[in-house]
Each structure stands twice: as structure tokens, then as C-alpha cells.
Design a protein around this nucleic acid. Structure first.
Lengths: 324, 324
DNA sequence: TGGGGTTACGCAATTCGTAAAAATT
DNA sequence: AATTTTTACGAATTGCGTAACCCCA
């Protein structure tokens, strides 16, 4: 068994069992990959792929298990390399953060600018985190950590910590009937088509909880994750927007009004997620601590050791979370 | 980075930084090992070993971290191989159990004989578990699992489950003053030099707890782990023995008497330990379930997923433990 | 001086690339 | 017919063994 063979294996899996496309991703010739996979299969004595003629058709059950372990193994290889690089030059490297649009746009800019000034040698990458993908992106090693406002599936070795709380506001055109100075009620909201986040976003959870409790049925006629899109459609008079308050502070549209809805919806959660299996570099801790002061390096290292639920809750209860 | 290089690295570490002796353990020539380590060090860019002249003198701090990860990585490689072998022939392989003398001698024989009859293709190895070594032996991959009557350090990914309870008995020569039919008290025991288990054995814990509570100070003039040794010295009149009741059932010495001490000492614990990181084969589950019926495959797989303390306690409280 | 480590060098085995053939859609 | 995998074969690289050299107790 060779590390290369395992890398080829993962590449094939990640390219839909297409060896040719996998070979390009690892900058190697296709027949070599094919051969190495055959060699690996014959060394282990098991078929990893189900073949239909010469094409790979599916992964065998045993192949699934092997691939799962291989991914873990390669993650550790990466960890060894990162440990070494960090020792050589703690301030040089990459930072890959997956996060949602709103966070990247309204909350993160200051921390990012401080970071790039402090660590000019670190190349900074910010990528969109799609719904339900945060965990897998981290576990695939695409992302060092994620800060998201969505429901995160628990996964093995994935650590999820509270990042901050955020509130919702109503966004309507200035001349909208709801913008008459009244105290907005849930009933008011139900009288208009609503444009807001998709299910799976924590901001949507708060809304659903409040409506469910009231027995009212709101009309979510349109759900999208991108705030700009929501704004645009609200502007066009297609509905009323329920969006993050933080996003309303930066509105330059003169003909739009925003009204806080704190009295209707409880604050939503945002989470920081990272994997136990990667080596967090000092500059990563530094960024996190700058952006989320309660998540100190000390706290992060402590939770990385693998605490049980009670210990975890005890730590989380001590956090003083910012509310935006 | 090559898997071979990491194997060499671990071999050197496990042979006291002696490359020559490490090279023999991996059936390869010494210069090759030397070269590969140099290559690995220069690829990673860090010194793993501190050199004094040409001799390896110690492992650098960064080397420690790398070795720790390398061990994990190789454990996963082994897991992949085991998964494949198990698929090829579920009833062929090895079973390595580390356990204590008393368990191997008095409790395990029936389960072992059933096992070797049922699985003639599995080679069976029983090795002594020394005090405090159970966890590390498992984590080094020397042992598939351990059943011990000693205090087991919690370690990362080490799972510890209750195996059974066992009681203590007094062992004295037939003509000993304590063998006069009386109900033995703690005071009685303190009037004679005691020969029993070393600290760290769970059987010793029960004794220490009882004596501490009573305020009495017993005289452990001799502590050993081997029951045969204890018996011999008791026979010679050097002291009174406090040993596992199960060991007194098989005494063939005609001039020795044993008296249960259940009323003085609470039952001691025995534990089953195994690692989350190895693949437990079906015949292993089978052996464990035969020997310890409450530890079914289902239970073992459940706890392998990584439960928190509460869930673990809930499961353990449901066990009906045998008392020997 | 001897146990152990590194350097030098050459053989053997692997890996990988190109080209051609085979098979699937 | 086009795409994709396997087979075949040759070139470059790598891993490992022997022998010689070096260094510290």
C-alpha cells in the first residue's frame, strides 16, 4: 500500500469514478492511476470498485469502508506536513475560511483587514459555505474552519462552538403599509408574502419557531440565501423581507425602511466549526480570537481534546456572546 | 512522504533510537533506514532527531508531534488491511489478548477452548498485561483488547467497559490462628503481615478503601501480582494472603484454608479495554460475548461510536455483571 | 577499538508516460 | 463515433543492498 495509491483512490471517488478526470486533478497520466488502483486492489485482495465492463460503476461496500479510512489517513499525512510547516515559519501559510455571504460581507471585513496586515505572508481565502455543507467541507480538508449561520449536522470529530447571536429585522419599501410606525405583529407579517432565508438557516429556524407557536401560517413565497437578492425583490414590491439586522445597517437604498423584529423572534445562532483532525495554526487561532473574542486559543485547544457534552455545555455557558 | 519512511521512524523510536537494531526489526539494511529518515527530515524541513555527532540522541519536540501522528497514520493503514482480510476470510486471522495471570488461569480457559475449537484458523495469543500498561499496549497495536483487574488510565480513543466483579478471600495455612471458625474482622487482618496485590490492582483498591474507612493500618509486608507466589509464601507461614476468591477454588494444597471476606471488602472491578481505532473482527466480538455475555457486538459497536459520559453510564448501569 | 551512523555506488524494482487496443454509450 | 479504460512497452526514478568511510565512547 502506498500513499499515492490512496490519493488516487480518493481522487477517483471525488471525480465521480471517472479515472480520466481524476488523473487530471492529480497531474498524472490516466493509465498510471488505473494501474495503481488495480495494484492496490490486488494487494488488499478486494475489489474497491464495481466494474461494468471496463467502466467503474460504483464503489463496493468494502470499498466504502476502505475509502473512509483512506481519507482519515491522508488527513493525518496533511497534518504532519502542516505541523512541520508551522514549525518552520509560523507566519507563512494559507487560511481557508468557508462562511456565508452575510457574515463575509457585514461582519468579517474588519477582522480580515487586521489579519492580512498582521500576516502578509498568509494567503487568505474566503469561500461560500453552502447549506449543510460546512461539515463535509471541513472534513474534506477544503476549509480550515467555518463560521456559519445555519444548522450544522454533527459529524465525527467536528467541533461546533457558538460564535455569536444575531437578530432579524423587517425590510420593506418606505411607502409600505407596515411602515406606519406601528408595532409589528406576527399577524402583520402573515398578511404579506415573505421573502427570507431557506430552511436550514438558523435565522429561518427562529421565524419558524415563532410562527409555529402562534399557530399562524406565514407565506414564504420566496426563499434565498443571498441578502442582495432579497433586497432587490423587496424593492420591486414582491414581498416583505425578513433578514439579518446587521444587513440593514448598511443599506444605501434610500427608499427602503427596516424595522427590528426582536420582540417577535428570538436571536438566531451562528456557529464556528472546525475539525479535531487538522492542526490549527497560530494565525488561525489569532484570527478567530480577533473576530470572536470569547473563542481564545486556550478554549479551542481545550475543546479539541474531546470533552463530553456536560463539559462542553459548561464552557459554552460561560461565553459572553456578541449580538448583532 | 512514504509509508515506509514513517514505519522506519516508528521502528527507530521503538528501539531506543538505535538505527541498527531498528533496521533488523524491519528486515532491512541499516544505511537504507538512515537515508530514508534523512529524506523524510529534509522533505518536511524539520529535524526529527537530535543528533550528538552521528548518534541519535533524542527526539525533538516537533519530532514527538510528528511521531504521534505517524503512529496514528500507521494504525489506520493496519485498519485498512484488517478490513480487507476480514472481508476475504472472516474466520482466519490472529487474536491477541493481554490479560492478567489470574484471569488467564482461572476464568478464561473455557472461553479459550471453545474459541479455538470454533475458529481453528485463528491463531490465539495470550500475553501478560503489566500494571498500567494495558492502554499503551492496545494503542501500540500489540493487543486487540485487554481484560484486566487493574486501574486503567483513560487514554484518547481507549474504551473501558466493566467486565465482571470479583471478591476477595483470606488464604492461610490450615493451622493458622485465624482459621478457628470466627468471623474475620479488619482488626484480625491487621494483626498479621499481609501478602496481597500491588497498588494499582483493583483488588488492592477495595482493601485500601476498607482499611482507610476503619482507620486501621494494615501491614502489607509483601506485594506481588502472581497468585502462585502469594500462595507459596503464605504456605511458608510468612503472612496471611488476601487474594481473589476465584483463585482459592482451585487450590490443590491440602494444608491451606480459604475464608471469604465479602463482608469486609466490596467487590473489585475487572475491565475490558479496547481501542476505537482498530477494526474488531467478528471472531473477536464472538470471543468477548462468549466470555462476557453482557458485552454483545451490538453494545461494543455502540460504544465505539463515541458516547458521552452519561450515555456510557446509562449503558453500563444496564449490565448484569457476573461476580466471581 | 568497536559499535553505530553516514556516504558512495550499483543493481533491481517501481512508477509513470506514450502509444495502441478494446470496450462502453 | 466519441469517450474512457486497459494493455504494452520503454524511460526515468526510487528504494535498497554492499562496501567503504567516519565518528564518539
Amino acid at each position: 500500500m502506498k500513499l499515492q495509491q490512496l490519493k488516487y483512490l480518493i481522487a477517483i471517488k471525488n471525480h465521480g469514478l471517472n479515472i480520466t478526470s481524476a488523473s487530471k486533478s492529480v497531474f498524472s497520466a490516466q493509465p498510471g492511476i488505473s494501474k495503481q488502483i488495480s495494484l492496490l486492489e490486488s494487494e488488499l485482495g478486494v475489489r474497491i470498485f464495481e466494474r461494468k465492463g471496463k467502466h467503474l460503476q460504483s464503489i463496493t461496500p468494502i470499498g466504502m469502508k476502505i475509502i473512509k479510512e483512506a481519507e482519515e489517513l491522508l488527513r493525518i499525512e496533511q497534518k504532519i506536513k502542516t505541523i512541520s510547516q508551522d514549525y518552520l515559519d509560523p507566519d507563512r501559510g494559507c487560511l481557508n475560511i468557508f462562511t456565508t455571504n452575510t457574515i463575509a460581507k457585514y461582519l468579517m471585513p474588519h477582522a480580515v483587514s487586521r489579519f492580512v496586515n498582521k500576516y502578509p505572508q498568509v494567503s487568505f481565502h474566503l469561500s461560500p459555505a453552502f447549506l449543510n455543507s460546512a461539515g463535509s467541507q471541513i472534513n474534506k480538508g477544503e476549509s480550515d474552519f467555518s463560521i456559519v449561520a445555519q444548522v450544522v449536522q454533527k459529524e465525527k470529530d467536528l467541533i461546533i462552538l457558538p460564535a455569536y447571536k444575531w437578530t432579524l429585522s423587517l425590510m420593506v419599501p418606505k411607502d409600505h403599509p407596515l411602515n406606519d410606525g406601528r408595532i409589528i405583529t406576527l399577524e402583520d407579517l402573515c398578511n404579506f408574502p415573505i421573502i427570507s432565508y431557506e430552511e436550514g438557516a438558523t435565522g429561518r429556524e427562529s421565524q419558524d419557531a415563532a410562527f409555529l407557536k402562534s399557530g399562524l401560517t406565514p407565506n414564504y413565497f420566496m426563499t434565498v440565501m443571498d441578502i442582495e437578492v432579497i433586497k432587490r425583490y423587496v424593492e420591486l414590491g414582491l414581498g416583505i423581507g425578513i433578514i439579518a439586522t446587521i444587513a440593514t445597517h448598511h443599506m444605501d437604498e434610500k427608499n427602503m425602511a427596516s424595522i427590528p423584529l426582536d420582540h417577535l423572534f428570538s436571536p438566531s445562532d451562528a456557529w464556528l466549526c472546525f475539525s479535531k483532525n487538522i492542526f490549527l495554526r497560530n494565525y488561525m487561532y489569532d484570527f478567530i480570537e480577533d473576530f470572536l473574542p470569547h473563542l481564545t486559543k486556550e478554549v479551542m485547544e481545550k475543546v479539541s481534546l474531546g470533552l463530553n457534552e456536560d463539559e462542553m455545555n459548561a464552557i459554552c455557558n460561560d461565553f459572553k456572546l456578541e449580538t448583532y
